[in-house]
C-alpha cells in the first residue's frame, strides 16, 4: 500500500481539523473572557474532563467479565492509592501500569 500522497493528505486533513478545533474557540471566547458563566464552567471543568477522559480510556472494559474489569479495578486501586499516599505522578502511573500489564499479559498467556 502506502500511496504517499494519500497518507500525507490524510495527515494534513486530520491536523487541520484538530488545529481548527483547538484555535477557533479562542477567537470566539475573547469577548466572553469575563463572562460569569464561563468562569463558573471553567472552574468546574478540569476535574470533570479528567473523569470523562479516564472513563473513555476504559470504554472497552466489560463490567461483567471478571478478567476484563478485574485487572482494571486492581490497577486503578493501585494508581489512586499510591497517588493519595505518596503524591508522585510518575510513581503512581508507573506502578499502576506495571500491575495492569502484568495481570493482563498473564491472563492473555
Amino acid at each position: 500500500m502506502a500511496d504517499h500522497w494519500y497518507v500525507l493528505s490524510a495527515v494534513l486533513v486530520s491536523a487541520a481539523v484538530t488545529w481548527t478545533l483547538r484555535a477557533a474557540p479562542f477567537a470566539m471566547l475573547a469577548p466572553l473572557r469575563h463572562s460569569a458563566l464561563l468562569a463558573y464552567i471553567g472552574d468546574r471543568m478540569p476535574v470533570g474532563v479528567m473523569v470523562i477522559l479516564a472513563a473513555y480510556t476504559l470504554r472497552e472494559t466489560d463490567p461483567v467479565v471478571l478478567t476484563s474489569v478485574g485487572p482494571a479495578a486492581l490497577a486503578l486501586a493501585i494508581t489512586i492509592g499510591l497517588h493519595l499516599w505518596r503524591g508522585s505522578m510518575t510513581l503512581s502511573i508507573f506502578a499502576g501500569t506495571a500491575a495492569y500489564v502484568l495481570v493482563v499479559s498473564v491472563i492473555a498467556a
Partner: peptide, 11 residues
C-alpha cells in the same frame, strides 16, 4: 493503561 492512569492522577 498508562493513559488511563495519567488521566486518573490528573483528575
Amino acid at each position: 493503561f498508562a493513559v488511563t492512569a495519567l488521566f486518573v492522577v490528573l483528575g
